[in-house]
């Protein structure tokens, strides 16, 4: 199966990556090359096989439900591109 230019645009939008018109053709070629490569998985008989959910047979550990960290807004915000009064600043989202 191969994907068309419209699909590339739709996926890029879902991934929140802007693509220029001039890039579409190359991306489409690359994606089709990769999708063509993974096509061979269709040969594998997977009847009755459980999908892997954990590579090591372990139970996820539980811990006490208590606060272990936090309370340091300055550290949390120190790498933010824009902040104001201890908050992240973003363009207006709700009119």
């Amino acid at each position: 199966m191969s994907i068309d230019a419209a699909t590339v645009r739709r996926i890029a939008h879902l991934a929140r990556i802007k693509v220029e018109d001039g890039e579409i053709e190359r991306l489409q070629g690359d994606m089709n090359s990769i999708l063509g490569f993974v096509e061979q998985l269709k040969e594998v008989n997977i009847d009755g096989v459980e999908p892997m959910t954990s590579v090591t047979p372990m139970k996820l550990p539980m811990r006490e439900d208590k606060v272990t960290d936090g309370g340091d807004a300055k550290k949390v915000l120190m790498n933010a591109p824009a902040t104001e009064e201890g908050f992240y600043l973003v363009p207006k989202v709700v009119e």
Binding site: H13, A15, R16, I17, K18, V19, N79, A80, P81, A82, Y88, V90, P91, K92, V93
Partner: peptide, 21 residues
């Protein structure tokens, strides 16, 4: 938003797309 590069856009969606591009 929280760290790293930011490339502004006309709204937050465009900002995400510009930044990641």
């Amino acid at each position: 938003v929280r760290y790293g590069l930011r490339v502004p856009g006309k709204d937050i969606l465009e900002q995400y797309e510009n930044t990641r591009s």
